[in-house]
Computed example of a mutant assay.
Amino acid sequence: MQNAEQGQATDLDGRGLRIAIVRARFNDSITAALADACRAELARLEVDAADVREVTVPGALEVPVALAALAASGGYDALVALGCIIRGETYHFELVANESGAGVTRVALDHRLPIANAILTVENEAQAWARAEDKGRDAARVAVEMANLLEDLS
């Protein structure tokens, strides 16, 4: 597949890839929609359902811990982080958004494993719903593309 903006080929062939999804249960209906869209897109990209594992954690701050355990297992070509952080009236939003994002990045770099970060950080629930399906699909495409790219680079 060609990336029209960059003129670069992208490999979205998911056959043979093993992918794990870590989904935060906080804002459960939104994160479930993210996961549904992600799994559907992985299937469309021909990732076998038997090669997709989904685990849930309480919230976005716990996502990096589960990602690290999955990465350390060596059993996956890519990981997906799903969550939803909605701004409230306190500083807690910034803390959770910043620390979960930094944790996801750290796991990816420490383990040299692609992680598609689809932890939504939004102002309100309407923004979350408006993004859930697209971001779930995007996460699947990023995971597959980056797994294939890292395989090519190694």
Rank of each mutant, 00 (worst) to 15 (best):
Q6W: 08
A9S: 13
A9Q: 14
T10Y: 05
D11K: 04
G14R: 08
G16R: 07
L17E: 04
R18C: 08
R18T: 11
R18S: 15
I19C: 01
V22Q: 01
V22K: 01
R23I: 03
A24Q: 10
R25Q: 14
F26P: 08
S29A: 08
S29P: 06
A33V: 02
A33Y: 01
A33N: 03
L34A: 05
C38S: 15
C38I: 13
R39F: 02
R39M: 05
A40L: 07
L42F: 12
R44L: 13
L45S: 06
D51G: 07
V57S: 01
L61Y: 15
E62Y: 12
V63P: 04
V63F: 05
P64C: 02
V65E: 07
A66I: 01
A66Y: 01
L67T: 02
L70M: 14
A72Y: 00
S73T: 08
D77W: 01
L82Y: 04
L82H: 05
I85S: 07
I86F: 08
E89G: 14
T90L: 11
Y91P: 04
E94W: 02
L95E: 06
V96C: 05
A97D: 12
N98T: 14
G101E: 07
G101Y: 03
A102E: 15
L113F: 02
I115Q: 00
A116M: 12
A116R: 10
N117L: 15
L120E: 05
T121F: 03
T121M: 06
E123C: 10
E123H: 10
A126G: 06
W129F: 06
W129N: 04
A130F: 06
A130Q: 12
A130K: 10
A132Y: 00
R137V: 07
A140W: 09
R141L: 04
V144L: 03
E145S: 12
A147I: 03
A147D: 04
A147W: 01
N148S: 12
L150K: 06
L150A: 05
D152K: 15
